[in-house]
Lab assay of single mutants.
Amino acid sequence: RKEMTAACTPRRRIINLTSVLSLQEEINEQGHEVLREMLHNHSFVGCVNPQWALAQHQTKLYLLNTTKLSEELFYQILIYDFANFGVLRLSEPAPLFDLAMLALDSPESGWTEEDGPKEGLAEYIVEFLKKKAEMLADYFSLEIDEEGNLIGLPLLIDNYVPPLEGLPIFILRLATEVNWDEEKECFESLSKECAMFYSIRKQYISEESTLSGQQSEVPGSIPNSWKWTVEHIVYKALRSHILPPKHFTEDGNILQLANLPDLYKVFERC
């Protein structure tokens, strides 16, 4: 597991931080080997919608929660590849102030007048994250320049770009939802926020969305749709870069829909 690298990086740093090793061990302890084997050997059937997909393993048909699986995938990559990410360069710098204002204007932020003026909160978020810029760049390849612009994001899987519609809320939550006081809790909560931002979430995906850094293989055609990215990038990574937690067998994120021999018997009677 320590050699797990989802995106190509030129050289690998050895990380011996106790906090990170502890988080890696927790993933191992909570892992479910049968689910790992199923995901490793599954045959992708198709997307139901951005949140759900169908896959077959041996004779069984499964309904998989793409949102939760991708979130767990990105969390584990962030923990196992800690401080070893490439950088996704933004085509132009994104001012943190503008991103924070967009987030505060969104109902998702939960902002009320009692929280104070949005401009003041946005300025605080910019200054707060600028103070964390060195650590964010060093460990997470999340790059913020001296003017308070976001200029780079971590490359977690080759050819995958997170849904940038979720970027404003991500920046807001970096400042408000991460435990910045304790090292282990900081790395864990920061990785979880980043994983949620990178995950496939239906509120940020339309039929026209593209999450891939590449064009489709047909010359002159439109960019790959999110469905292509889910199948050929995300579920491909799920084959080798995730140890599913045991609770996925109990919380409805992986559901067995049918045993195909039983279905064949039904059709034979028709």
Rank of each mutant, 00 (worst) to 15 (best):
T67K: 12
T249Y: 06
E114C: 11
G31V: 09
I254Y: 09
M101W: 15
E217P: 08
P168I: 00
A55N: 11
L88P: 00
C8I: 12
L39A: 09
A6F: 15
L61G: 13
L99V: 09
L211I: 07
W52R: 05
D262I: 13
G220P: 09
P10R: 08
G116N: 09
E183Y: 07
L61C: 09
C270D: 14
F128C: 02
K118F: 15
L238Q: 07
L88H: 07
R239H: 13
L167K: 00
V218S: 08
R13Y: 15
E92H: 06
T66H: 02
K60T: 07
N28M: 11
M4C: 11
P95M: 04
A122W: 01
T249L: 09
Q51L: 13
L211N: 03
T112Y: 15
P168R: 01
N65E: 10
E143I: 09
L129K: 01
M4P: 10
R13N: 10
E123W: 15
Q203T: 06
T5F: 14
R173V: 00
A53K: 00
K131Y: 14
D181W: 12
V34R: 12
V45K: 02
Y198D: 00
F128I: 02
L17C: 07
W226N: 05
T112E: 14
V230C: 04
C186R: 02
L64E: 01
R11A: 12
Y264N: 03
L129T: 03
T9L: 05
I233G: 14
V45Y: 01
F248S: 12
P10L: 12
A7Y: 14
L21G: 04
I254D: 02
K192G: 11
R269L: 15
I15M: 05
N179E: 07
Q58G: 11
I171R: 00
G31K: 10
E193I: 04
I151Y: 06
K132I: 01
E29D: 09
L243V: 06
E268R: 10
E72F: 11
L243F: 10
F82Q: 03
E25I: 15
L102Q: 04
D138V: 06
K132V: 01
Q51D: 08
E114F: 15
W226H: 08
I205M: 08
G31A: 06
I169S: 14
D251F: 13
V161T: 06
S19R: 15
L63P: 00
N16F: 15
Y139F: 05
A103D: 00
W226K: 09
L17R: 02
A94N: 02
V20G: 15
E71K: 07
N224L: 06
D145R: 01
D98Y: 13
L156A: 02
S216L: 08
I125Y: 01
I14D: 09
L129W: 02
G110S: 01
S199W: 00
E268G: 12
K246C: 14
P219I: 09
L96D: 00
T5H: 13
F44D: 01
S191R: 14
E231Y: 10
P219L: 09
P154N: 00
P245H: 13
P93A: 06
Q51N: 05
G116E: 03
P223C: 10
S106E: 08
L69Y: 11
N65H: 10
Q51V: 07
Y80K: 02
C47S: 05
D158G: 07
I151D: 11
E127T: 03
H32M: 09
H57F: 08
S91Y: 11
G120L: 15
N253G: 12
D251R: 05
D158K: 08
E185G: 05
N16G: 07
V45W: 01
G31N: 11
N224Y: 06
L238W: 13
K131A: 11
V34T: 08
E185L: 06
F44E: 01
K60Y: 11
Q30T: 10
P93G: 08
N16A: 14
Y264S: 03
E193R: 03
L238Y: 11
E3N: 09
G31P: 13
S189T: 09
L23A: 13
T59V: 11
D138Q: 03
F82Y: 04
M38I: 10
I151W: 12
A53P: 00
P10G: 11
S189Y: 05
Y124P: 01
N65Y: 01
G148S: 04
L17S: 03
F82I: 01
L238C: 05
S221F: 12
I77G: 13
G110L: 02
F197Y: 06
E177R: 01
M38K: 10
A6L: 13
E114W: 15
L174V: 02
F197H: 11
N224T: 09
W111Y: 03
Y75Q: 13
P223V: 06
P10A: 09
T66I: 12
L190E: 00
F170M: 06
C194G: 04
L136W: 01
Q30P: 14
Q58E: 06
K192T: 11
Q51S: 04
E92R: 08
P223Q: 06
H40W: 13
D138I: 05
E33L: 12
C270L: 15
E143P: 03
H57M: 04
P95N: 07
E188P: 03
T210N: 08
E114A: 04
G166D: 14
L63C: 11
P10H: 13
K265N: 07
L142Y: 04
I144A: 01
E37C: 12
E193G: 02
L54G: 08
L156E: 00
N224R: 07
N49F: 14
K2M: 13
P245Q: 10
L64Y: 09
Q51G: 07
G213W: 07
Y124E: 01
H42T: 13
S109I: 15
K60A: 10
P154T: 00
N159E: 11
S240W: 09
F170C: 00
A122G: 06
L260N: 07
L35G: 11
H32Q: 10
E72N: 10
W111R: 02
A237P: 02
Y198M: 08
L150K: 00
A55R: 00
R1K: 05
I171Q: 00
G86N: 06
K118M: 15
I14T: 06
E26K: 06
D262H: 13
K192A: 12
G148Y: 08
L174Q: 00
W226E: 04
E231V: 12
E3D: 11
T210S: 05
F82L: 01
W52K: 03
H42N: 08
E185M: 02
S43E: 04
L63H: 11
L54C: 04
E231I: 04
G46E: 02
S191P: 01
N49L: 12
E177P: 00
S19F: 12
R201D: 14
K2L: 13
I14Y: 12
L260D: 07
L153S: 00
S191F: 01
A237N: 09
I169K: 06
E165W: 03
R239Y: 12
L172N: 01
E185C: 06
E29K: 05
G120K: 02
F267Y: 08
Q256P: 03
F187D: 01
L39N: 08
L174R: 00
H232G: 14
K184I: 10
E119V: 09
C270E: 14
S109D: 13
R239M: 12
L88T: 07
S191Y: 06
L190C: 03
P117M: 15
T210E: 05
G110A: 02
